[in-house]
């Protein structure tokens, strides 16, 4: 049985101006699975995630969500198919309070599920509950990251995309964020994780995809990847 993927990119080619960034990438996420998206800096990981969401438009190839072609659809339509995105550099709204950052995103999920409410998010992130009235830009880096993850959960997603969620955080805070990611994964939400902490990502993921210069050089299960440490060495320098 092959269930319909939540999101799928087929032969994606994306450019920034004249630079050919994605060179024919295939990428699939199925319901409930955790996918590690790996690769050195500048290899096109963020570009791939943005291409899937329609934040940048692939010139060639196709994006499908829930089995439908969404390549030309506006970003908000794609997101409404149950995809939540935590971008690189966080993307909180600094001019909104913590509560407003969360409330503005609230909606039921693509299947009508309303599992994540303001109360549940605040219970999961006690630090946010303590700062509920503060402006977004009054938070520490780690708290801002919790806020973007909490805000993403307010949309009741089927898939959570995390682009470098622990970047620039102190080790203790990074560990706290990782615990949250593990809990979200355990709750059955599919995840795509980009992170420098390769050990943590491969431990979490069911599958891994490695990008080199906009091309997929490895796509397989986490077990397969662990069996080939030379892959990590060649392509990630570890």
């Amino acid at each position: 049985m092959t269930a319909t993927p939540i999101i799928e990119g087929r032969d994606l080619h994306t450019y920034y101006g004249a630079s050919h960034i994605l060179r024919g990438v295939d990428f699939t996420v199925s319901r409930g699975e955790a996918v590690a998206l790996m690769g050195r800096n500048g290899m096109g990981k963020s570009t791939l995630l943005k291409s899937l969401l329609g934040l940048v438009r692939p010139q060639r190839g196709e994006v499908r969500a829930g089995g439908e072609n969404v390549t030309a659809q506006p970003t908000h339509r794609i997101a409404r198919r149950g995809i939540a995105y935590v971008p690189e550099g966080r993307g909180i709204f600094p001019n909104l309070s913590v509560r407003e950052n969360l409330v503005m995103a609230a909606r039921s999920g693509a299947r009508g599920q309303r599992e994540w409410t303001l109360d549940r998010v605040l219970a999961s992130f006690p630090r946010l509950a303590d700062r509920i009235g503060h402006a977004g830009d009054a938070l520490s880096g780690g708290e801002q990251q919790m806020l973007t993850i909490g805000r993403a959960l307010m949309t009741n997603p089927d898939l959570l995309i995390l682009d470098e969620a622990t970047e620039g955080l102190a080790p203790l805070m990074a560990r706290e964020i990782w615990a949250i990611i593990v809990a979200i994964r355990a709750s059955g939400i599919a995840t795509v994780v980009v992170d420098r902490n390769h050990a943590a990502v491969t431990a979490l993921a069911d599958r891994a995809v490695i990008l080199v210069k906009g091309q997929v050089v490895f796509s397989g299960t986490a077990t397969e990847l662990r069996a080939k440490p030379e892959l990590l060495h060649t392509h990630l320098g570890v």
């Binding site: 997101a79 993403a152 949309t155």
Partner: peptide, 22 residues
């Protein structure tokens, strides 16, 4: 909520859309 979206959009339009808001 409309007001929050208006204020959020003045800061980061793409992020608002990525949250599923038109």
């Amino acid at each position: 909520k409309l007001g929050m979206v208006i204020r959020a959009g003045s800061h980061d339009r793409d992020m608002v859309q990525a949250l599923g808001i038109d």
